[in-house]
Computed example of a mutant assay.
Amino acid sequence: MRKRDILTPIGITLGFIMIMLAILFKGGMEGFNSFLDIASIFVVLGGLAASLLINFKLEQIKLTGKVMKEAFHQNDHRLKDLIGMFIRLSERARREGILALESEMDEEDDPFIKKGVLLAVDGVEPEVINDIMNAEITAMEERHYKGRAILEKAGEYAPAWGMIGTLVGLVLMLNSLTDPATLGPKMAVALLTTLYGTVMANLVFLPMANKLAAKTEEEMFTKQIIIEGVIGVQSGQNPRILEEKLGAFLPKEEKEETEDEAVFTGESVNEA
């Protein structure tokens, strides 16, 4: 299941609001208007687009919007619920046989879980299941890397194009040294491209790329739990032992919460 990650839009919006408030407090609306320059925007966005077109294939460029959209969503895989599902599958497999799990997979939304359990139902060796599913994780990691590489490169190129725009502005300014009254305004406009490029890199592109990298690590971690769960179910492990094994993947806070719940209900997580 996927849900919206509200922190990404909140962070981007908050960053822009703080910048605008700083400008308004110091210079009012007149100061705010001085920070808008169409030519500077064209230099940064146009140069950035040109660099990305040179750096990447057209197929990758087309995926930019989809990749950026991923930073606004997150997978709703709760580890406790995931572990609970495998405990339930283990109990049913021991009670009714591994073939009984095939019908359960008809309603499973996660293709990775579905694939692993169906491989187990088909009697594939645990080592082979491990190899197949780990190969899928490696392929996923590579796809994710190629996707966020566009954002990482955009984060590198945006400040560089901002600096190029500033250099262009300085050249134009130096050509008009005979009119000292124009030096201040032209210097301000020249510096705007550096501002635009730096803000875009550090408020949009690089934070999004880092978030996507963190999401990839989280997804790989979750998939490793799934692999352990599938192999545990196939090998007929005692549900309580499987619970202990998968529980090792839980963060400390969730482990303590699980133990507290077990004590409250009079159960023991160590019960065999």
Rank of each mutant, 00 (worst) to 15 (best):
G232Y: 00
V230Q: 03
N202W: 03
E104S: 13
Q237C: 09
G28H: 07
G197A: 02
T178P: 02
T178S: 15
E102W: 04
N175K: 12
I38E: 06
F205W: 08
P180M: 08
S268T: 11
K255I: 02
A272W: 03
I17L: 14
S268W: 00
H144R: 11
R94K: 12
N55E: 10
I83P: 02
E152H: 07
K153Q: 14
T193C: 10
E141T: 12
Q234R: 10
T182Q: 13
I137F: 02
V43N: 00
F25E: 06
E102H: 04
E136L: 05
P185G: 06
Y157N: 07
R240T: 05
A93S: 15
I38D: 05
G116S: 07
K252Y: 07
G11N: 04
M200E: 05
S34C: 00
P239T: 06
F72S: 07
A248V: 11
G15Y: 00
K146T: 09
E261N: 11
I17W: 03
L45M: 09
V204Y: 04
I83K: 03
V168E: 03
Q237M: 14
G15N: 06
E96C: 11
A22L: 12
E228P: 07
E136C: 07
K114W: 01
N75D: 14
K146N: 13
D37K: 03
P159C: 05
L63E: 12
R2I: 13
I38R: 06
A120Y: 01
D131E: 15
L53H: 09
H73Y: 15
G47V: 08
L63A: 15
P159V: 10
E59L: 03
G123Y: 00
L119Q: 06
M133H: 00
I132K: 05
F35V: 06
N270H: 10
T265P: 02
L79V: 11
G47T: 09
M173W: 03
S90E: 03
D260K: 13
S90G: 15
N270D: 12
I241W: 00
L99R: 08
A39W: 12
S235M: 14
L212M: 09
V230W: 00
K69L: 13
E108L: 08
E152K: 14
V117N: 05
L203R: 03
S34A: 12
G162Q: 09
A201L: 06
I98C: 02
M133S: 03
N134M: 12
L89A: 07
K114V: 01
E152V: 12
L45A: 14
E267D: 11
G229H: 04
L212C: 08
E127I: 10
P180S: 13
V124A: 08
Y145V: 08
G65I: 09
S103G: 05
E244L: 14
L48K: 02
F25D: 00
N175A: 10
L82G: 08
K215P: 04
E261H: 07
R143L: 07
P9D: 01
